[in-house]
C-alpha cells in the first residue's frame, strides 16, 4: 500500500499563530483516512496547504511521490488532487447538469477544446453520478435553489466527475439531515471501493468518522496529537482530553 500524500514537517503560521506545527502524516492509496481535532486545531489549514491554496512556511508535501508544495491550486487540481469546501461551494446560478459538465477533468484541455461541445458519454456520466448521489430528478434545477444538504451532495458528485485520484473532504456530513447521512457514508465508501478514489476526510461527527475511516489522525493546537486505527484513537486519553479541553492539565503531568 503506497502513500498518496506524504506530508513531512509541514508548518504554517498566520502572524503569531502557528496553525500547523511540523505535521508529518501519510495518506495511503485506496483507503479512507480521517482527520479530526477540536475547532481551530488546524485541520482546514492543512487541507489548504495540501491543495496549494497558500504556500507553506516549511516542510514538504508530496503527492504520488511528486513535490507539490510549490504548485498553484489549478495545477494541483489537474494532477487529480481535489478538495471540497466546508462552506459548500457550487456554481449557484447554473443547473445541476451544467455544474457537473464543467467539472470534467481539465488536465487534457487545450485552447481548441475550449469551444467544443460535450460528447454524449460525458453527459451520460454526469447523469449517472447525479443518480449516484440521488439528485437525478432535480438535475435541471438551478443548483443554488437546492437545500444545503443537496448542495453538499452535488459538490461531492462534481468532485467525482473530475475523476480525482485523491479527494479531500472538509466535513462532508455537516448540515446534512441525519437520515441522509447513512446514504452519504455509503456513497463515500463506494467512491473508494468502486471508483477507486482515495479519501482524506475532516469530520466532527465521531460515530461517522469512526465507522468510515481505516486510519485516523488527530490534531490539537496545530500539532499532530495521535494517529492510528479508530479503536485506538477512540480510547486514546490524549484525544479525549483534547476534545474535552483538558490538555492543559496533561502538560503539567
Amino acid at each position: 500500500m503506497s502513500a498518496m500524500i506524504e506530508c513531512e514537517g509541514v508548518t504554517k503560521a498566520f502572524g503569531g499563530i502557528v496553525a500547523n506545527n511540523e505535521i508529518t502524516l501519510e495518506v495511503p492509496e485506496g483507503r479512507i483516512t480521517g482527520l479530526i481535532g477540536p475547532n481551530g486545531s488546524g485541520k482546514t489549514t492543512l487541507f489548504n496547504s495540501i491543495v496549494g491554496y497558500h504556500p507553506v512556511d516549511a516542510g514538504s508535501i508530496k503527492f504520488e511521490g511528486r513535490e507539490i508544495s510549490d504548485l498553484r491550486v489549478q495545477q494541483i487540481a489537474r494532477l487529480g488532487l481535489l478538495r471540497t469546501f466546508q462552506q459548500t461551494r457550487i456554481y449557484s446560478k447554473m443547473n445541476c447538469v451544467d455544474n457537473m459538465l464543467i467539472s470534467v477533468p481539465h488536465r487534457t484541455q487545450t485552447y481548441r477544446t475550449m469551444f467544443s461541445k460535450y460528447p454524449p458519454e460525458v453527459t451520460e456520466r454526469a447523469e449517472d453520478l447525479l443518480e449516484f448521489v440521488g439528485l437525478y430528478e432535480k438535475r435541471f434545477l438551478i443548483s443554488g435553489d437546492l437545500s444545503f444538504g443537496q448542495q453538499k451532495l452535488l459538490e461531492f458528485a462534481m468532485a467525482l466527475m473530475n475523476e480525482p485520484r485523491l479527494l479531500l473532504l472538509d466535513e462532508p456530513t455537516a448540515g446534512i439531515n441525519p437520515t441522509l447521512i447513512n446514504g452519504l457514508i455509503d456513497r463515500l465508501r463506494r467512491a473508494t471501493s468502486e471508483l477507486g478514489v482515495t479519501l482524506f476526510v475532516i469530520e466532527h461527527n465521531m460515530p461517522v468518522i469512526m465507522g468510515l475511516a481505516d486510519n485516523i489522525y488527530c490534531l490539537a493546537n496545530g500539532r499532530l496529537l495521535a494517529h492510528g486505527p479508530p479503536e485506538k484513537i477512540q480510547n486514546d486519553q490524549r484525544v479525549i482530553n483534547a476534545y474535552l479541553g483538558a490538555h492543559y492539565y496533561l502538560d503539567s503531568d
Binding site: 491543495v51 489549478q74 487540481a77 461551494r89 456554481y91 459538465l101 481539465h106 488536465r107 469551444f115 461541445k117
Partner: peptide
C-alpha cells in the same frame, strides 16, 4: 459549449473554478 459553462462557473465562484482545475 464548454466556454459558456466555464464563463458561468467563473461568474458564480471563481475560487471554486480554480480549485476544480479550470484554466
Amino acid at each position: 459549449g464548454r466556454f459558456g459553462l466555464a464563463a458561468n462557473a467563473i461568474r458564480d465562484d471563481e475560487e471554486k473554478a480554480e480549485g476544480m482545475g479550470i484554466h
